[in-house]
């Protein structure tokens, strides 16, 4: 499973929740939202091996 945040990409094993995947790469689950195929998914969603997840920072704008 692939996790993408800004310019960074991580390859992780499937079977974990969005929350656990975010924690595993050292980010705060409260500070990002997860999109799968452009659709928002909640942090308890279990991720599959072939998922590509884009993380969007909650803090943004000026």
């Amino acid at each position: 499973m692939r996790l993408i945040y800004r310019t960074q990409t991580w390859e992780l094993r499937g079977g974990m929740t969005v929350r656990d995947a975010i924690r595993k790469v050292g980010l705060d689950p409260e500070a990002v939202l997860a999109l799968r195929d452009g659709v928002l998914i909640n942090e308890e969603t279990i991720l599959a091996e072939d998922d590509v997840i884009k993380l969007v920072a909650v803090v943004s704008g000026g």
Binding site: L33, L40, V56, A57, V58, V59, S60, G61, G62
Partner: peptide, 24 residues
């Protein structure tokens, strides 16, 4: 909360600028 406004924009399909202002 910021998380809710971001989620609203994403679900609503609003194309907004993701990046924080570089001066911030």
């Amino acid at each position: 909360r910021e998380r809710e406004t971001a989620a609203y924009a994403l679900v609503r399909g609003i194309d907004y600028i993701y990046d924080e202002c570089p001066h911030a």
